[in-house]
Amino acid sequence: MSNATAITNRLEACFRQVHAERMTGIPILNGKLGVRAVGIAPWNGFWFGVLITPWFMNLVLLPQEADEEIIRSGEKRLFAFPAGPFEFIRGHEDGLGPFWMCSLFSPVFEFEEMETAEATAIAALAGLMEGVQVDEDRDMQRIWQGDLPEAVDLEGEHTAAGQEEAGAAEDAGKAPVAAELSRRKLLTGQLRDSSR
Rank of each mutant, 00 (worst) to 15 (best):
M23W: 12
E157L: 11
D94V: 09
E136W: 08
T188F: 02
E110A: 13
A66F: 12
L29F: 03
G189A: 06
M129L: 15
S182Y: 00
G131T: 04
F99E: 04
V35H: 08
E110M: 10
T8V: 02
K174H: 12
R77K: 14
L104E: 09
T116E: 15
I28D: 14
I143C: 01
M23R: 14
A179G: 15
E68P: 00
D193V: 10
N9G: 10
D67H: 10
V35M: 07
I122Q: 15
A4M: 07
G97T: 04
L125F: 04
G162E: 07
D147L: 15
P149M: 02
I71P: 03
A169F: 11
L96C: 09
E150G: 02
H158M: 13
L62Y: 06
V177E: 03
I40F: 04
A124F: 06
L96K: 03
A117R: 01
E165T: 04
D135P: 03
C14H: 03
G162D: 08
I143Q: 01
L78P: 13
V134K: 13
G127C: 05
D139Q: 14
V152E: 14
A168T: 08
P176E: 07
S106F: 12
H92R: 12
T53N: 10
A124R: 04
R138G: 06
E75C: 08
V60M: 11
I122C: 11
Q133P: 01
A66Y: 12
I70E: 15
P27Y: 02
G173C: 02
G95D: 05
I143M: 02
G84Y: 02
R142Q: 12
A4G: 06
